[in-house]
Design a protein around this nucleic acid. Structure first.
Lengths: 343, 343
DNA sequence: CCCCGAACTCAAAGCGCTTTGGCATCTCTC
DNA sequence: GAGAGATGCCAAAGCGCTTTGAGTTCGGGG
C-alpha cells in the first residue's frame, strides 16, 4: 500500500492524504480522521526512502563502532548503552543504524556515511585519548554526540556525555587509603582510551595527596576481560610485596580478580580488598538489593538515554547550543572491601 | 557531491557515470577508470535513499529486538551475535538497522518495517517456544533467518541457524552422570524460550536413560544473570539433599554459581561440579589457552556470521532453497568438574 | 567510398514521497 | 448582493538515483 493507492482509495489527492497524515492544518478534521483510519486499516506506513528523499530527513541515527584489532567496542557496556539509547529512539520513531567498521578505514567510513545520507546524526563511541573523529565530524557538519570525551582542549566545542572517571577513581582510591591500604593495584582499561587515562589520573591524584607513590608493577592496562583480571591479579600476588587492595575497571575484570583470589586461597574483602567500576549493566548486576562488590557505579544505560536525547535535540535544531553532561559515579559499599590486613 | 554534480564535472551524462560506477559493461574501461577516480577524489557515495527508491533494494537488514518486561534480548550473547553478523554486512556493504520494540507491539513492528521498506530482510532473535513472528514474516513475504528455532513442526519452512541445544545438554548431563553425580541441578534460561526448552529436554533425556528421575527442586528457569546463578545455588545448597553438580545455562550464571560456592566454603570441581554453556563471547572468554569451566561450547559469533550469510543469499535470490544449520557444541573439560564426592 | 554494426553515450521516465502555488468553494461583512 | 478572506483540496515539481530506449560516433568490410 502506498500513498497513491491510499489516496485513490479514499478519493482524495495524494497531497491531502499526506497533509492529513502529517498533521498539517490545511485539512479538515473530518477528512483527517477518515484518512487516519484508512491508513491504519490498510497498514500504510510511508516509505522511508521516499520520505527521506523528499524531506532530507531520515529519522535515523548512526552508531559507528570501530572494530579494531586491539580493542573491541562491541562489548557488554556498549550493549547497555544502545539499549538505553534505543529507548529514546523508539519513542521518537527513529531508527538506529549500526555500522561496525575496521578502524583503519574509520575516517572514510564517516565521510561515506555522510555522503550516503542515510542518517541524520551519529553517536561516537569509545573516544580515544585524542580522537580525530571529532574534528572530522565537525568538518563534515553532521550532528553528533560523543559518549565520553577526548582530550581536554576543545571539549566545549562538541556535545558529550561522560562519566566523571577521574573523580570516581580518585574517590575509590581515597576510600582504600582510608581503610589503611598502601599498596593498591590498578587494573585499568586500555590507556589509549580517554576514559582509562582519566581513571588513571584519579588514581594517581589520590595516591599523591596521601603522599604515596605509584608503583609501576601494580598498574595494568588492557582490554577489560575476565581473563585479564585473573592473570594480572595472579601476577601481582606473586610479587614480593603484593597489593592489599585492587581497583578494577569493570565488573567483568572483577570476576577475574575474584577467581584469582579464590585460586590463591585468599579471602576477598579480608586478605585483599577489591573495588570495581560498575556500569550497572542489566546482565551483570552488582547484586539486586545489596551490592556485592564495593564499586563506583554509574549507569551506562542512562548515559545512552542522555546521549540519544541530546542528539535528537541537535538534529531537530542544529543551532541549539552544545550540551555537556558529566555524570557522577556513586561509591557503593559492598562486601569486597575491608581494612588493610596488618602484617 | 551528487551524481549530477559529478557527471557535469566529468563532462559525462549521469547515466554513464552511474553505469561506470555500478560495473555495467556498456562503458569503456578508460571512462570507467576516470569516473572511479573522480568519485573517490570527491568522496562521492550514491545517496542510499535515492538508490533504494530507484532499485527497490536497500542494502540494509533489520534486527528486531523484542524488549519485554520479562526477558531482555539485549544481552551479551546478542552483542557477540551482531558482531559476527556485521562482519558479513560490512563485507557486503550492507547496513544493519536495529529496532528495539516493546514485544506487545511486535507484530505491528514487523508489518511496519515491511511497509516502510527500509530493509531487505530481517533476522529474528530469541524465538520463543512457539513464536508467531515466523508465520507473520512468511505472510509478509520478507526474507528472514531465525537465530534458533521455534517448535518442531514447521522448521523446514523457514531458514534457521541453531545450536544443538538438546544434544549439548544431554551430553553435559551424561558426562556428570558418568562422573558419578546423581543429583544434578539445572539452572536453565527462561523456559518460554525455545532454546531453554530444548536444553531441558536434553537434560531430561540423559537422566532418563540413566534411570534417574528429575527433581523439581533442582530445576530452575530464569533470565540468565549472575545474581540468578548465585541465588538459585544458595537455595539448592540449603536443601536436605543438595546437588553435587550443577549445569548452568551461561557463563554469567556460572559466575554466580562460583560465588555461591565460595560463599558457602565449598570447593568448585570438588565438592560441587559445574558445567556451563559457553557461547564463546569475546568479553567472557572461558580461559584463553586452557578452559576454566567445563563447558559446552558453541560460538554465537559464528552463528551470527552464518545467519548473515544465509540472509544475504536469500536476499540476492529469494528463490534459493531454505537453509537449516545445526551447530554442534563441543564439550570442553575445564577445572570445574570432578568425580562426585562420596558421602 | 559508403554503409553497417559495435561500442559508447545520452535524455527522460519513474521510484514514493513532500511541498509549493493555485484553484474552487464557502462564509462573512459592508 | 458583491468582494474579501477562509477553508479545503489538488496538480505538478522535485528529492537523487537507476534504467530503458534512443541516438551518436567510429572503424572496418564490401
Amino acid at each position: 500500500m502506498n500513498l497513491k493507492e491510499l489516496s485513490t482509495l479514499l478519493g482524495l489527492s495524494q497531497t491531502t492524504v499526506s497533509r492529513a497524515l502529517n498533521g498539517y492544518p490545511e485539512v479538515s478534521e473530518v477528512t483527517r480522521d477518515k484518512v487516519m483510519k484508512a491508513a491504519k486499516l490498510h497498514n500504510y506506513s510511508p516509505n522511508t526512502r521516499a520520505r527521506g528523499l523528499a524531506t532530507g530527513r531520515n529519522h535515523a541515527v548512526g552508531h559507528v563502532i570501530p572494530l579494531s584489532t586491539e580493542h573491541e567496542v562491541v562489548n557488554p557496556v556498549f550493549t547497555d548503552f544502545i539499549a538505553g539509547a534505543s529507548e529514546i529512539y523508539s519513542r521518537e520513531n527513529y531508527d538506529m543504524i549500526l555500522s561496525i567498521v575496521p578502524d583503519s578505514t574509520e575516517a572514510d567510513a564517516y565521510r561515506k556515511i555522510a555522503a550516503k545520507g542515510s542518517v541524520d546524526g551519529v553517536i561516537v563511541h569509545g573516544p580515544k585519548a585524542n580522537d580525530p573523529r571529532i574534528a572530522l565530524l565537525r568538518e563534515i557538519g553532521m550532528p553528533f554526540v560523543v559518549h565520553g570525551r577526548s582530550g581536554i582542549a576543545e571539549e566545549s566545542e562538541y556535545s558529550w556525555v561522560d562519566m566523571n572517571n577521574t573523580r570516581a577513581f580518585e574517590r575509590a582510591t581515597e576510600f582504600l587509603i582510608d581503610l589503611g591500604h598502601r599498596r593498591i593495584g590498578l587494573l585499568n582499561g586500555l590507556e589509549t582510551m580517554d576514559f582509562a587515562l582519566k581513571r588513571r589520573e584519579g588514581y594517581r591524584a589520590a595516591l599523591a595527596s596521601a603522599a604515596l607513590k605509584e608503583h609501576k608493577d601494580l598498574c595494568y592496562s588492557s582490554e577489560m576481560t575476565e581473563e585479564y583480571g585473573f592473570t594480572a591479579t595472579m601476577e601481582m600476588l606473586a610479587l614480593n610485596q603484593p597489593p592489599t587492595a585492587i581497583l578494577a575497571s569493570s565488573i567483568i575484570v572483577g570476576f577475574g580478580v575474584r577467581r584469582a583470589l579464590d585460586t590463591s586461597g585468599l579471602k576477598i574483602g579480608k586478605d585483599v580488598s577489591l573495588i570495581v567500576h560498575d556500569d550497572d549493566l542489566s546482565y551483570l548486576r552488582n547484586g539486586s538489593n545489596e551490592p556485592i562488590y564495593t564499586a563506583t557505579r554509574s549507569s551506562v544505560r542512562m548515559a545512552g538515554r542522555i546521549c540519544a536525547e541530546i542528539l535528537m535535540e541537535q538534529i531537530s535544531d542544529p543551532n541549539r547550543p552544545l550540551r555537556h553532561v558529566l555524570l557522577d559515579a556513586e561509591l557503593i559499599i559492598g562486601h569486597t572491601t575491608g581494612p588493610a590486613p596488618k602484617d
